[in-house]
Design a protein around this nucleic acid. Structure first.
Lengths: 235, 235
DNA sequence: AAGCAAAACCTGTCTGACAGGTTTGGGGGA
DNA sequence: TCCCCCAAACCTGTCAGACAGGTTTTGCTT
């Protein structure tokens, strides 16, 4: 069960399985090289076309990495593919923004707790710095969004659980597309400053290793964001 | 920014972008057909090989679906690809089981709350039924695992948030591979019955629309599972 | 109008070819 | 002897053409 059984019906599917098994059986680690297309096509008794399509499939899932001239290598985990899948789900009305926000709230509440407990001093400094940058960019939504995303990413990083980083990264693509809407629904300067201030306070709570306060602020942030989205008429 | 910018450097990357844009611009929904390989290769001025590799990439991410003889169609969201990515992360030591359990605990706690609030009567009945089946299979670990996974999947379904279903599904692949280990570390009949009983009680709490009790039981379940894993020497 | 069969269309796979980019091994120079 | 550099060997990216099935459309027959 697993990688080697997604598509037993086609040569490409079989090749994907064989390559995956190859990785697993030899315990290949990220960066390790795979056999060349020619060699694999000889060993699996299929054409290079089939091997190439199998490679492309695995590369799309970020299980391997391709580069021209070089051999394929085992890849590091990356949120790119997941981000695309989530975006696809939203664009095809299979997922809506509120559902994403509920998930984000759930995991970011946990993330901020872990971050407050496990963050290194360097991470704390970086998180505080990013919140400060947000304040400095109050007049430039595009920059502000960038620092906002970086803030949440840094928090996930500080949680020391790569799965949280992965998930936060996965939501980033669609967040980038909806963030401006949320910003526009905070018309007053006060509302906007409150939002940034919440981030600054949160950063300080993490730096002070105060998980309870950090969690409260994260809840506040999401309550406010969801309210803003509702105001914008996004049901 | 998004789908059309993953890989601007290659023809295949460009093709992936063009196909994604095609889906988005025409607001294609799951099931809708895409142009044929021949047509796309003509429109994009590339060989059919390139279009096929682009199709394979999108199919690997479950953004489109391929079938021999038929045209490619827009796909429904599916956890298959994510499951593979997570498995890859674990097998290459980029993620460990405890990190997965932390994430599962976090989201399943939320899921069970939502399920207790939003479940339909049919869903409640199904959840209770699955917990009952677990009890009936106490002597058959393989069957028991099957019903355990189905139980958590049904809970996610009842939360009425497809993102939770997606995430639970994503963890299922790796869970299937580690579940037996956890089971072996519950050597006494009492420990095993307790585990199943917790599920039964949880199902009842959901059926009784008692989110607080359901959450308590979910916490209990995960506490116990993590303890079992630690006992097994899985640090 | 319904049903059936051929034609048109489409995907899966193979072969062979060639343009670059990358790695490697050997030879020449210091 | 050791280091550097270059050419050969290797590898991936892309193309064109071909053919075996599977699927849809068309048009004829009943």
């Amino acid at each position: 069960m697993g990688l080697d059984q997604i598509n037993t019906a086609s040569l490409v599917g079989d090749a994907i399985g064989a390559i995956s098994r190859h990785i697993r059986e030899r315990d290949l680690m990220p960066g390790d090289k795979l056999p060349s297309e020619a060699l694999l096509s000889k060993e699996l008794n299929v054409s290079r076309t089939v091997v190439r399509e199998a490679f492309r499939s695995l590369a799309a899932m970020r299980i391997i990495e391709l580069a021209t001239g070089k051999r394929a290598t085992v890849a590091q985990i990356d949120h790119g593919a997941m981000s695309l899948m989530i975006e696809h789900g939203v664009h095809t009305d299979q997922i809506n923004i509120h559902q994403i926000y509920d998930v984000r709230r759930t995991i970011e509440t946990r993330i901020v707790t872990l971050a407050a407990i496990r963050r290194t001093d360097e991470e704390a400094a970086e998180i505080v710095r990013l919140a400060g940058q947000m304040h400095a960019c109050l007049g430039d939504p595009c920059q502000l969004m960038k620092y906002d995303l970086a803030f949440h990413t840094a928090l996930a990083q500080a949680s020391r659980n790569p799965v949280y980083s992965l998930l936060i990264g996965s939501f980033q693509g669609i967040t980038r597309q909806t963030w401006p809407m949320g910003w526009k629904t905070r018309p007053t300067q006060a509302a906007r400053e409150l939002m940034v201030q919440t981030h600054i306070d949160m950063a300080r709570a993490v730096a002070a290793s105060d998980p309870l306060k950090a969690v409260d602020l994260m809840g506040l942030h999401f309550d406010e964001s969801v309210r803003a989205l509702l105001t914008a008429g996004m049901s």
